[in-house]
Write a protein that binds this DNA or RNA. Structure first.
Lengths: 403, 403
DNA sequence: CTTAATAAGTCAAGTGTCTTGACTTATTAC
DNA sequence: GTAATAAGTCAAGACACTTGACTTATTAAG
């Protein structure tokens, strides 16, 4: 009996895990509800007043929360609300797109403090790595100029780029996203910045952003349909981003549609790439974003035609998302001109019938999210903040504790 | 400032939560790996030998694990493996289908000890409730005749029926599944049995079964495509069944397919219901199952035609599941005749290209699961066992602790 | 104005569960 | 026969939450 097969098991937990969880629960509660008193926190978390007091004291020492003015609420001693301190933690978010890379510095509550972008030369990682590392270095030094102790309070760097990861692709993309997808980006960024680095696809980043400061704030189940150069879905399931086995969950752009006996990926019909092709414009044109926004605002005929066609496919995508994920709401967002997203939303309705149609709904089935070229970078930055501060199963387990 | 808005927060945890988690982790490790020594468990769970010893001792007292013969593994003191005791816990599983209801008693390791079924009269809950409660009572008394203390070790009753739940339906189903879906089944079963009752849709139950004793055993991300009277997907995400906001996640049968300008739910094209219609047979015929199995085995022409057509839609369903969930594998199962499922699997291949095609795969993209009229009832029973013994986030939180 | 009711928050001792480090036991390798 | 190695135990210790009494601050009511 050769007993060298690896034993698979979840990790156990201990006091530290308990405490780490409770800290995270407090921070989460303050993020969702705004400032709360110790007594409020004790009731909401089911912990004792004493425990809450101890943890709040510790969080205050760590500069993550601070007390506000006391509030009189009827009989009894007035309560002292505690709120998150925005400058308690920072994260850098990095978006790598086809022709451009964007970086932001974000604080604990999701405000963008610094932002910068740079053009990405063609040629993939071999030409782009330095540009990216310089951009990140610049953001860090600008952040250090604005706030004290920023480097000490930097919890990590989140990177976002179009997926899918680790999949053999078509190889016909001159902007080399495939090269980026194969490139050991995590290792390169870790080595180049010394930070804790995470990587997700752009739709996931958009969902993370919506969860921290947008329409998915405080929701347990929400799906962001993200329209960028491609199209993808960012999945918030059970209050956490769902990544799938290889970080590719939600890559709805690769879903095949069948029509007229041929199959076409959704991405070829409903994405900025398809719009650019429809309009015969150069995707690398730096003024394209504003130009498209203009056209959309003016109701340009050519845009309208594309919107009408894309809306049909997106209506179906939303139907499918509702059917498979049963979310509380679907959020349409994008790194696409806002006017375009608004036209899309208008054209998508009314939605197809689905299990989402039920009595007693409080949230709309479809709502607009951020449509902003910076939302992906923001979401990328929200990743490390969430990893560091949000309550989640993995944070309780011993193998994640090393504080 | 009216401050009566409810405060939303996750619950905190304490020592009991820690301990509950560690107990569950041990049980899970023994379930996945088979019998393990205390030292093995300590290494796998990252807990200390002492902690493991204490917990094992407690689990042994509770009759959930027992020691086996010592094993010599080279130098050092021989180890004493501990394994799960099958009769350490039981659960009742109940399937409510259109024309029949089935119930099983299952033990801690997922063996079916007792099974029984009864025809369901037309008319929905008003006529069927008594049949169901009698069936469950019969199962319980038979179980009590086989094993000692079965009632004390009964952790709950899991019920499964076709979804979706809580959705306005078409109202054209003479077998009144819609009436069942609206009926307060949970309350009725709780009152009628005195047990802790859970409810899920049949595809979710099938997935739960595959996770406990089938092809999804020990996997973190797997999707079961379940072919029954309808068709649905049971989702294992992050090692747990994913239910969605209203327990309707995975209802892929309601996904609309567009062809020739019309939309049709997948269910109308790939499900036993569609097969029955194709064959013009009576779905209430009790011999239908064996009959279909026979036809499938013999390669009947009419079945082949349906299989070919359904396989096209199922191939697409699998592609979509891979694209949206990025699972380790997709499992095709059903409460459908096994020969039919085998024909379907044969006809579905080769699969469509998707993100699941990657170098270094170890699991097949599609594999057969249970195709057995009893698998849904088994999965229904696996629900309470999983809730009681599997490690999960919710089990750590204070609001779930009352032991 | 005085007193009772109410609620926030603190204090100090208590409890439960994991950890630590030394020790015992059983086996194989040399 | 002895050393090395690994399983498992013992007893004390540490840590984080809990308990219950107490203090403080405010409003409601007579």
């Amino acid at each position: 009996m050769n007993d060298s097969r690896p034993i698979r098991a979840k990790s156990g937990t201990n006091h530290e895990g308990t405490s780490a969880h409770n800290r995270r629960v407090m921070i989460d509660a303050l993020r969702i509800n705004g400032a709360l008193s110790r007594a409020d926190l004790a009731r909401a978390t089911r912990l004792t007043k004493q425990t809450v007091s101890n943890i709040i004291e510790e969080l205050e020492r760590d500069g993550l929360v601070s007390s506000q003015e006391t509030v009189r609420r009827g009989r009894g001693q007035p309560s002292t609300p505690y709120g998150l301190v925005p400058e308690g933690a920072f994260a850098i978010g990095l978006q790598i797109d086809r022709h451009v890379t964007r970086a932001v510095a974000v604080d604990l509550v999701g405000s963008v403090l610094v932002r910068d972008e740079a053009g990405l030369p063609p040629g993939g990682p071999s030409n782009g790595t330095k540009v990216i590392l310089d951009l990140v270095a610049g953001i860090r030094s600008k952040l250090a100029g604005i706030v004290q102790q920023s480097e000490k309070r930097l919890v990590g760097l989140g990177a976002a780029m179009p997926g899918p990861f680790g999949v053999a692709g078509s190889g016909d993309d001159p902007w080399m996203m495939e090269a980026w997808q194969k490139f050991p980006l995590l290792e390169t960024l870790t080595a180049g910045t010394g930070l804790d680095v995470g990587l997700q696809n752009d739709a996931a980043a958009a969902a993370t952003a919506e969860r921290m400061v947008g329409a998915a704030h405080g929701l347990d189940h929400a799906v962001c349909l993200f329209v960028g150069y491609g199209i993808g879905a960012g999945l918030i399931l059970n209050g956490e981003l769902y990544r799938g086995t290889n970080g590719n969950a939600g890559e709805i752009g690769m879903a095949l549609l069948f029509a007229d006996g041929k199959s076409t990926p959704l991405e070829h019909r409903a994405s900025l790439a398809s719009l650019y092709q429809h309009l015969s414009v150069d995707p690398a044109d730096p003024h394209l974003y504003a130009h498209i926004n203009d056209l959309a605002l003016r109701g340009d005929q050519s845009i309208r035609a594309w919107v009408e066609a894309a809306a049909v496919d997106m209506r179906w995508s939303i139907h499918l998302i509702e059917t498979l994920f049963d979310p509380q709401t679907v959020i349409l967002c994008g790194s696409a001109p806002e006017a375009l997203v608004n036209r899309l939303i208008a054209a998508i309705g009314p939605l197809l019938p689905s299990i989402a149609e039920r009595r007693g709904r409080t949230l709309p089935r479809l709502q607009p999210g951020m449509a902003d070229p910076w939302s992906v970078a923001l979401g990328a930055a929200a990743g490390p903040i969430s990893r560091a501060f949000d309550p989640r199963f993995a944070a309780i387990l011993k193998d994640s504790l090393q504080s």
